[in-house]
Amino acid sequence: MSAKTLAGSPLRGFKSILEGKYFAWILLAPSMILVVAFIFYPLYRGVYLSLTRTVLLEGPDSTFIGLENFRQMFRDSLFLLAAKNTLIFMVVGLITQLAVGLGAAMLLSQDRKYIGLIRVLVVLPWFTPPVVTAYMWRFILDQNSGVLIKMLEGVGISFGPAGLWSNPELAIYAVLFVDLWASYPFFMLFLLAAIQGIPKDMRESTAVDGANSWQHFRYVVLPLISPVIVVSSILGVIHLINSPTLVLLMTNGGPGDSTTVLPLLAFQIAFQSYDFGYSSAISVAVLAAIAGFAMVYIRFAKFGKED
């Protein structure tokens, strides 16, 4: 039935659109408009801004300067330091969160009483507001009244007279520890879903063949969940270096610039010195780094599977 035969009244025409092949697109349209307006358009503007000189204090105009912002990065020692910190953050963060997440997923995939409840409980840190996470751990790790610091001192581990947060070598690892608490459940959920997707009788058959638990894990479980490890790692890394929230709240880059990571630097340049062009360029560099990491990682993961 075409619209023509029903074109008698405007209401009928509208109804026929709803019933017809555009039904899906009508339902999709509102969300698509929002996504285009508030994600794709800003994304495009962000990339454009990175090619301009736009300093809000000098006025609202932007001048096209090509790749000059990107050239400036390599002369900027703070950028290079932040890049190094970001690399540490990414590598250490990914390895620890993935390792703990995998271990937790193995443990929580076992059948136990109340395991469903515990699985949910363990994910609570992921949903805890970052502001609460940040201040709670600042308190627990506070030099003067932090319970964990006092306990560590009790067993002979101390972080010097100025404390953990004033130690430029250690502060970044303190943030990484807090991020581990908050973020490993993300990996755990992915890997738990993958492990639960493996048929239960698989273990019985490998046991008949004489495989011990480790061999079962290494040659059966690990290959089966490796695609999920890849996916969760990419999403995890994006989460790790995408959001400067925890660093911003816990150290704001300090002591010195020892915990300044690239997204935080971009944030500070944008909203403290209002250099929108250079800040956007740093964000584009982060995006490129994520894309590069994802491609190398996928290639590497595929390579590992072939042999």
Partner: peptide
């Protein structure tokens, strides 16, 4: 869309 870094969106979003 999940892969898009939020930081890159901050400035244009603010201007918009």
């Amino acid at each position: 869309i999940r892969l898009v870094p939020g930081v890159l969106l901050l400035i244009p979003m603010y201007l918009f």
